[in-house]
């Protein structure tokens, strides 16, 4: 019961969702659309479960004054305050002057942009240490990266004689070799996703059930 019922549900729901591709009937589409809505609702509910888990994990660390307890407190406070103003704001939370909008544009947006921009420094530093044209493979990697970076900045675009050609070359690299490499990875990924999907539906893959 504890294992069989979830496996039966997995098989049934999986087959129904796969069937959508082969049965182009509006009634069947309504059923799969409904399943999709339920899935999205469940995924949203998993967020709430995640918050409960976050609180369960961090509250003991704060009360017992474990290392970094103060930062955990800041995290939970910012979480609670943002949730509160988001729910109090309701559908109007994003209108001009709303507290949630203020938090979104003055705290969330600059913090997320700066976090990601910080990576630029580390990527550049890592590249400086790792990129050495020791052989043909590494040379191609380095050359393609340098060309793309140079062609996308004003100094590269305005280089005498080669500036315009750099742009064309960068576009060719992005359109041809890069597309070939990316497509091969996409195709490999798609084959992997299909195989994993089949394993889940047939009950061969059970890790999501805690087995």
């Amino acid at each position: 019961m504890k294992r069989t019922l979830p496996l039966i549900i997995t098989f049934f729901v999986g087959i129904v969702m796969v069937g959508e591709f082969f049965i182009p009937h509006y009634g069947y589409r309504m059923l799969t659309d409904e399943f999709l809505q339920w899935g999205l609702v469940l995924a949203a509910a998993a967020y709430l479960l995640g918050i409960v888990n976050l609180i369960q994990v961090n509250i003991p660390k704060i009360t017992q004054r474990k290392p970094d307890w103060f930062y955990k407190l800041i995290m939970l406070l910012s979480l609670a305050i943002t949730l509160a103003i988001g729910f109090i704001g309701g559908q109007d939370r994003q209108v001009e002057g709303a507290a949630y909008r203020w938090v979104y544009s003055s705290v969330f947006t600059p913090l997320s942009a700066t976090m990601f921009s910080l990576l630029a420094f580390y990527i550049a530093s890592a590249a400086f240490r790792a990129f050495r044209a020791r052989n043909l493979d590494a040379g191609l990697l380095l050359g393609a990266a340098m060309l793309v970076m140079l062609a996308r900045v004003p100094i590269g675009e305005n280089l005498p004689y080669i500036g315009e050609g750099l742009g064309h070359l960068m576009n060719w690299i992005m359109d041809v070799p890069n597309t070939a490499a990316r497509r091969s990875i996409f195709i490999g990924g798609a084959l992997g996703a299909i195989a994993t999907g089949l394993r889940v539906i047939l009950g061969l893959e059970r890790s999501h059930l805690g087995d």
Binding site: P6, W38, L42, G189, L191, G210
Partner: peptide, 28 residues
């Protein structure tokens, strides 16, 4: 496990045909 099974199966079924259609057939 019941809602988790539903969620995983729903996305597995969706991705199975979706990936085959979008990332395999179209890319080829």
């Amino acid at each position: 496990r019941i809602p988790i099974a539903f969620l995983v199966a729903m996305f597995a079924g969706l991705k199975l045909t979706g990936e085959a259609n979008a990332n395999l057939m179209t890319q080829v």
